[in-house]
Design a protein around this nucleic acid. Sequence first.
DNA 1: AGGCTAGGTTTCCGATAGGAACCAGCAGGT
DNA 2: ACCTGCTGGTTCCTATCGGAAACCTAGCCT
Lengths: 126, 126
Amino acid sequence: MSGFGPGDPFLADCPARLAVELIADKWTVVVLYGLSKGPVRHGELIELIGGISRKMLTQTLRRLQAHGLVRRHAYAEVPPRVEYELTPLGATLIDPIHMLTEWARANGDAVLDALDADPEPVAHGD
Amino acid sequence: MSGFGPGDPFLADCPARLAVELIADKWTVVVLYGLSKGPVRHGELIELIGGISRKMLTQTLRRLQAHGLVRRHAYAEVPPRVEYELTPLGATLIDPIHMLTEWARANGDAVLDALDADPEPVAHGD
DNA sequence: AGGCTAGGTTTCCGATAGGAACCAGCAGGT
DNA sequence: ACCTGCTGGTTCCTATCGGAAACCTAGCCT
């Protein structure tokens, strides 16, 4: 069991780990997925993503923006219009995100089946 | 802007969405990464993954086990030995997880640079 | 004037994460 | 025989987070 070197996302402080924590988040993945096909408005994302609140959407987008993955474009119109899109750096995430969502689409049922079949994983003495 | 259909992880209740929420989690990704090279002991994971506590590790592993992604093997020895490994279903996650961690390794620095350069994303009026 | 729109923030409260401390069970040293 | 240590797990307690709903801004329309 070696082959893990420095730069692996195991070290708590290394940039790789921080990057994982940035995107390995319930809403973040779905938001990035929503952005993966081009610029989207705030309201579109709200309608697209079932269950997200304005607060969490804004918060997630802000965090991604602060980390250079998302660009925000506010048009000085009225009513206001704000579009979000992936930066070039953010676009490099499209493939990983799509692999994840593809996996989820393909295996979501299997995962639920397993949960249904195994209501009691084990309780501290096998 | 369409092309998103049913089965996409957008619907709050669909299995794909639940599957995303299962793995899109700070510790889950790192734990799956730790499991991706073969059976590992609880204590090994603790040492491997910087910053994780026993509680969060156990909790994460239990959840993955309940969803059929991880198998737990407790040997009746003393001192106790418990090994965890991916199930075949869990193994289908290796590629997506590795894409994520590869992305993190490649872009972690860029993400931190952006954070450093952009300490103030925007504050509600562009 | 009042209401509508769209994006964002604030407030409040229940749920969760997370660390520290504790527990079980047995082998081995003394 | 007792005390200690090794390993995995759980319990307790608190700081933080998530989420719903209300409120805010600013201009156009009626």
